[in-house]
Computed example of a mutant assay.
Amino acid sequence: MGRLLSRGLLGRRRRILAAVLAALAMACAAIGLRPDTSSVTVLTAARDLPGGVLTAADAVPVALRPGTAPDGVLRPGTPVAGRMLAGPMRRGEPFTDVRLLGPDLLAAHRPGTVATPVRVSDPDSARLLSPGDAVNVLASPADWDGSEPARSIAEGVTVLALPADESGRGALIVLAATPEQAAELASAQSGGRLSITMAALRR
């Protein structure tokens, strides 16, 4: 009779243990299926943006899953109105520090690099560019007839931004230049016209 009692107690304990383990398994499964409600809110483009000066209506807050936001992303409350967008953005694309003209845009370049706006005579060639491209800048007289070659005044300079420009006078681009190159570019475009060719990126 003692053996039967022991077996009964052992069986009961096993049933209780099995029930506890089953409850734990169900709880773990429920936790695993529960949607992750945590998120990080960032500023994104409210519409397709061509570049140029931003307004407050150009940025909207959007919640992203943790780990999906890019480095340097701008959070709600960051002022963007009046700042210059470095290049075109698609609707829903997050704003980051390097997408806006300012000190952060030059952070990846050598100390002393300056953002230099120049106007090139051929807007069609400028439309082929994107921020990060490297270009060579050529200068020629305003009345250039092609009888003499244009002179190179800056080689392998990086395009920082392509601001929207409706002046109809060529195309405006912003380059990462040395102070010496910036002075040469300013002098050349004051009395002539500038053109560009694509350059291989320096490694």
Rank of each mutant, 00 (worst) to 15 (best):
R3T: 12
R7F: 04
L9A: 09
L9Q: 04
L10D: 02
L10R: 08
R12A: 13
R14H: 06
R14Y: 02
R15W: 04
R15V: 03
I16C: 02
I16H: 07
A18K: 06
V20Q: 14
A23K: 10
A25S: 13
M26L: 15
M26W: 15
C28P: 01
I31M: 12
I31T: 12
R34N: 07
R34F: 09
T37K: 10
V42Q: 01
L43C: 07
L43M: 10
L43Y: 04
A45C: 10
A45I: 03
R47Q: 11
L49R: 02
T55M: 14
D58P: 10
D58W: 00
V60I: 12
V60L: 03
P61R: 08
A63K: 03
A63D: 12
L64P: 01
L74N: 02
G77F: 01
V80K: 01
L85Q: 04
G87K: 01
M89K: 07
G92T: 09
E93I: 05
F95R: 05
F95E: 01
T96H: 02
D97H: 07
D97M: 10
V98C: 11
V98D: 13
R99T: 05
L100M: 08
G102E: 04
G102A: 04
D104T: 10
D104R: 13
L106D: 00
L106W: 01
A108Q: 13
R110K: 15
R110Q: 14
G112D: 11
G112R: 09
A115K: 02
T116H: 06
P117K: 13
P117I: 14
V118Y: 05
R119W: 08
D122A: 09
D124A: 15
A126E: 02
L129C: 03
D133T: 02
V135C: 00
N136W: 04
A139L: 07
S140R: 12
S140F: 06
D143H: 12
D145M: 06
G146H: 13
G146Q: 13
A150R: 11
A154D: 01
A154V: 12
V157A: 01
V157W: 00
L160D: 04
A161M: 03
L162K: 01
L162Q: 00
G168F: 08
G168E: 10
G168V: 14
G170Q: 07
I173Y: 01
V174I: 14
P179I: 02
P179C: 10
E180W: 06
E180Y: 07
Q181D: 07
A182H: 05
A182E: 06
A183F: 08
L185R: 01
Q189S: 14
S190G: 14
G192H: 06
A200W: 11
L201R: 15
R202A: 14
R203Q: 14
R203S: 14
